[in-house]
């Protein structure tokens, strides 16, 4: 497999990988790094890629695992202390009210969900993967995914309704 063939293979899902990484890592730079990392890993495995019948699912799984590892190592490091100082929910709520941009605000709500739910929202509501594909990526069964997704969606709705006066813009 040469470079051009490889680029063509990854092009359809390269941005999906980036968006999943951005969902989990928040920063664009880190998401770019993660995308690069995953693609280079795939490239190094290029001789075996034909063994996988769904390279995209493999790439998404790799992205998910890579980002979760990144988050874990970040939390294990110094950042944890810094992070804990600011995990208090109250200032976030205040900020929410200040947010004029409603879409940014949805993003903040989603970012407060547990990572597993964030992944599911990203895969289903943003990328519109079928449940079957999501099951492959996150290694869960479809029923569990539906239940978790329902929980995530309800949480988003709840957070949105909690801010009064919202919706009348």
């Amino acid at each position: 497999m040469n470079q051009n063939v490889f680029i063509e293979l990854i092009n359809p899902f390269k941005d999906k990988v980036f968006r999943l990484a951005k969902r989990l890592l928040t920063s664009t730079e880190e998401a770019e790094d993660a995308t690069q990392e995953v693609m280079v890993k795939l490239w190094n495995k290029k001789e075996n890629l034909s063994d996988y019948n769904n390279v995209e699912a493999v790439a998404m799984t790799m992205t998910k695992n890579y980002c979760l590892d990144q988050l874990k190592s970040k939390r294990a490091g110094n950042l944890k202390i810094v992070h804990n100082n600011y995990t208090d929910r109250e200032p976030l709520l205040d900020k929410k009210l200040e947010d004029s941009n409603s879409l940014e605000w949805v993003e903040k709500i989603i970012n407060q969900l547990p990572e597993q739910l964030q992944i599911l929202i990203q895969l289903r509501d943003v990328e519109q993967y079928e449940f079957e594909e999501i099951a492959k990526i996150v290694n869960m069964n479809e029923t569990a995914i539906r239940v978790a997704l329902s929980r995530a969606r309800k949480k988003i709705r709840e957070s949105m309704l909690n801010t009064h006066g919202y919706g009348i813009q």
């Binding site: 390269k14 941005d15 990988v17 980036f18 968006r19 951005k22 969902r23 998401a31 770019e32 995308t35 409603s102 879409l103 605000w105 949805v106 993003e107 989603i110 509501d125 943003v126 990328e127 988003i156 709705r157 949105m160 309704l161 919202y166 919706g167």
Partner: peptide, 17 residues
């Protein structure tokens, strides 16, 4: 009230590496 939620999903999908 649900508008931003779905609006956000569509908007995020436009992001590109």
């Amino acid at each position: 009230q649900y508008k931003p939620m779905f609006g956000y999903f569509s908007q995020v999908k436009e992001q590109k590496s």
